[in-house]
Design a protein around this nucleic acid. Structure first.
Length: 271
DNA sequence: ATGCGGACCTGTTAGC
DNA sequence: TGCTAACAGGTCCGCA
């Protein structure tokens, strides 16, 4: 499910009911996520006020005065508020109960997500320490991307999906951004002009920004913290549109596989 | 240093 | 209708 817009949608959905509220209790029903849920996380979180709910890359950070819970939704994770009488559903691995009465459940069928505790500044956590800049932040410019691409023969699509280069660009939005920028997904990263890199950075920003405003992309099972699906799916121009006409030139959208990921593009518009 | 393939999981869908 | 295989929004790790 979640790429950056979906994680941001989740953050915005859950933050208002968590921030400034004390945790009444935490239940871990299944610790087996991508990494086991941190031992002692329940005790560390319980009784603490969640000062802020932040996002770094696709990680959600629940900050308290004594440490931070780091969550990742992986491929199929979601966080939703439930009513007290709602029985835990299949794959509801963790439940966080607030003193306000709100109950947040973390559900993740494929268990590629994680929920970890760190006493230190989360930016220093091994999972976050090596991450590149935020795609919608000031550091991510065409000039930056061009500098990081110099001499690289890797396909541009894989390059922008590399979290060491820039975070938060997943498969859907990599496809969409390259279409908007008119760049072929297989083009070598080091063989793209400065001008086109500017276009690409602008396209990534536009696509992510638009998707956040639409509440993310629901392909099948994404729902934000408020339980609503994302409507950006209707705005997708190439993703999952193999053999359909290109919205720009009327040609046929192609499908291929690149780095084991589904890739969609228009061979006429993208060079 | 870079680049590739495999690994971790379950659920849904396409195809026979 | 039922079984099986392929595929899915992420990303870490080990090896060449």
């Amino acid at each position: 499910m979640p790429e950056l817009p979906e994680v941001e949608t989740t953050r915005r959905g859950i933050a208002p009911r968590l921030e400034g509220v004390r945790v009444a209790g935490v239940t871990v029903r299944d610790r087996r996520l991508r990494w086991p849920v941190s031992v002692g996380l329940e005790e560390r979180l319980t009784g603490r006020v969640i000062d802020s709910v932040e996002r770094r890359a696709k990680y959600l950070l629940l900050r308290t005065s004594d440490g931070t819970a780091i969550a990742h939704l992986g491929m199929s994770g979601s966080m939703r508020f439930v009513t007290p009488e709602a029985q835990p559903r299949k794959h509801d691995h963790v439940e966080i109960r607030m003193e306000s009465g709100d109950i947040l459940r973390f559900n993740d069928p494929r268990r590629f997500g994680c929920l970890l505790w760190t006493d230190a500044e989360p930016a220093e956590h091994p999972l976050l320490a090596q991450l590149g800049p935020e795609p919608m932040g000031p550091e991510f410019t065409g000039e930056y991307l061009r500098a990081r691409s110099r001499g690289r023969r890797v396909a541009i699509k894989q390059h922008i999906m590399n979290a060491a280069i820039v975070v938060g660009v997943g498969n859907i939005y990599a496809n969409e951004s390259l279409f908007r920028a008119g760049i072929h997904p297989k083009r070598a990263a080091g063989r793209i002009s400065a001008q086109r890199m500017d276009r690409l950075v602008a396209a990534i920003n536009a696509v992510l920004d638009e998707s956040i405003r639409f509440g993310g992309t629901t392909l099948r099972d994404f729902y934000g913290g408020e339980g609503k699906p994302g409507y950006f799916r209707n705005e997708l121009r190439v993703y999952d549109r193999a053999d359909e006409p290109c919205v720009r030139c009327g040609g046929t959208v192609r499908h291929t596989v690149l780095g084991q990921r589904s890739t969609f593009y228009c061979a006429n518009c993208q060079t």
